[in-house]
Computed example of a mutant assay.
Amino acid sequence: MSIQLREVSKSFGSFQALKSLNLTIAKGEFVAILGPSGCGKTTLLRLLAGFEQPTTGEICMNETQVAKPGFSLPPEKRRIGMVFQAFALWPHMNVTEHVRFPIRHHQETPPSIRDREQDRIADVLQMVGLSEHGGRMPHELSGGQKQRVAIARAIAAEPSLLLMDEPLSSLDAMLRMDMRREIQSVHRQTGTAIVYVTHDQGEALAMADRIVVMKDGRIEQEGTPQDIYLRPQTEFVAKFVAKANLVRGRWNNGIFVPMSSDGTVQWAGPEVAPYFQACGMYPVRPDQFELCPSGTAGIRGEVTNVQFQGREYHYHIQSEDGTWEICSPLSFRRGDNVSLRLLQTSGSRQEALTR
Results as ranks from 00 to 15, higher is better:
Gly254Tyr: 09
Thr24Glu: 15
Ser294Trp: 14
Lys77Glu: 13
Glu166Ser: 09
Ala193Lys: 11
Met137Tyr: 13
Ala268Val: 10
Phe12Met: 04
Cys292Tyr: 01
Phe240Arg: 07
Met281Gln: 15
Arg250Gly: 00
Ile183Ala: 06
Ser261Cys: 12
Gln344Tyr: 08
Val284Gly: 05
Phe51Glu: 02
Gly135Arg: 10
Pro54Ile: 05
Thr55Lys: 02
Glu220Gly: 08
Ala244Asn: 05
Gln309Ile: 07
Ile80Val: 15
Glu7Gln: 15
Ser331Gly: 03
Val265Glu: 12
Asp287Phe: 06
Phe276Ser: 02
Val303Leu: 05
Leu246Asp: 03
Gln307Gly: 00
Glu290Trp: 05
Ser112Gly: 00
Thr296Asn: 12
Gln65Pro: 02
Gln189Ala: 14
Asp178Thr: 10
Glu63Phe: 01
Lys77Cys: 01
Gly322Pro: 08
Leu44Ile: 06
Gly223Ala: 10
Thr190Met: 08
Arg355Ile: 09
Gly301Asp: 08
Leu130Tyr: 06
Trp90Phe: 15
Gln307His: 07
Ala17Cys: 04
Trp267Tyr: 15
Gln307Phe: 09
Tyr196Glu: 03
Arg148Leu: 03
Gln147Asp: 09
Glu312Leu: 14
Arg153Phe: 01
Gln318Trp: 00
Met214Thr: 13
Ser346Ile: 12
Asp227Tyr: 00
Ile183Asp: 03
Asp209Glu: 05
Asp216Tyr: 04
Ala278Leu: 09
Ala204Glu: 06
Tyr229Ile: 00
Arg355Lys: 00
Arg104Cys: 03
Pro91Arg: 09
Gly280Arg: 01
Tyr313Ser: 04
Arg341Glu: 04
Arg6Met: 03
Gln350Asn: 12
Val195Phe: 04
Leu89Ile: 07
Glu325Ser: 15
Met137Leu: 14
Ser2Cys: 00
Ser72Val: 14
Leu89Val: 09
Phe240Thr: 05
Phe332His: 08
Glu132Ile: 01
Asp178Lys: 12
Leu340Asp: 11
Cys39Glu: 10
Met214Lys: 07
Asn337Ala: 14
Glu97Lys: 15
Val265Phe: 03
Ile228Arg: 05
Glu97Thr: 09
Asp178Arg: 12
Asp227Thr: 12
Ile155Trp: 02
Glu166Lys: 07
Gln307Trp: 04
Leu175Trp: 04
Tyr313Met: 02
Val237Met: 01
Gln118Ile: 00
Gln350Thr: 12
Gly217Lys: 08
Pro274Leu: 03
Ile59Glu: 01
Gly135Thr: 06
Glu203Ser: 10
